[in-house]
Design a protein around this nucleic acid. Structure first.
Lengths: 141, 141
DNA sequence: GTACGTGCAAAGGTTTTGCATGGCG
DNA sequence: CGCCATGCAAAACCTTTGCACGTAC
């Protein structure tokens, strides 16, 4: 499994923050290095284990926590009772169906304008955002 | 504890859907009947127990699930590993601090415009939305 | 009176922690 | 070679389920 990995960028960020690059971390990084993934811890374990079979569940939790602290990942809640992790940067725009749970991503977003307003008004330094609409999809209507 | 409760509206919705009005449900309804609350199941249990001490934890879970099915509540994830329940209607706009976890609500929101675009584009029937910005608050900078 | 709702306790999952071993730098 | 990171197993949590009893309608 050796693409010239785009994961490289993430590896740099770990290194710069003073963390060691281990096979366990590499496996997790490769799995979550997709702007459109939204995996829960068990998904990550399962997929990363294919890259590094010795990987343990606790390590996945520890790595996900680390990546969240570094601002690389963000946990979101999609209705079931486990968190799902998505890339923290930029924006995520979801259309969630209340009936079948399907999630559609869309691009349009006007959050950029608001970002500046909010930074000024509340003194917040804003790094990313999540915009979700809830309703019923075409098929479920 | 007997205001002329605004909770009345919620009670109606339960009745209409064919559910019995019990003290346990009333207590939970009163606790979550606040557009700005974002409580996790334990919070709800704790607060509702003050209104109805016999209340059990399982009943809180069952009631929260029921209210979610009826479209009255919606679970969201705010970083810890428990869901928090908010009123499902309309929009929720949060400014979340990555460091201290503080949540500020704001009013401005341009999601209304997008709603129509998305309904047309994806055939979705949209009922509500959640817009969250993540960053660091004034105090944590 | 009947069916639905409840509280309790046990079961089922998920997440966290402790600790001896292993491996990155 | 020194620490940090890991895997395993156990502990701690949170959530769900089964069941006999209570109660809204």
């Amino acid at each position: 499994m050796s693409t010239t990995i785009p994961t490289q960028q993430l590896v740099e960020r770990l290194k710069c923050a003073g963390y060691k690059i281990t096979p366990a971390r590499l496996a997790v990084l490769q799995v979550i290095d997709d702007d459109h993934a939204h995996l829960n811890p068990s998904d990550v374990l399962e997929q990363a284990k294919q890259l590094y079979p010795k990987l343990g569940r606790a390590t996945v939790y520890r790595t996900l926590e680390l990546l969240t602290e570094l601002g690389i990942l963000r946990p979101i809640y999609m209705g079931e009772n486990t968190p799902r992790f998505i890339r923290a940067e930029g924006g995520h725009h979801h259309l969630v169906c209340n009936d079948c749970g399907d999630v559609i991503e869309f691009d349009e977003c006007m959050a950029g304008d608001l970002t500046k307003v909010l930074q000024d008004q509340f003194g917040f330094e804003i790094g990313s955002h999540l915009l979700e609409f809830y309703g019923r999809c075409r098929d479920c209507r």
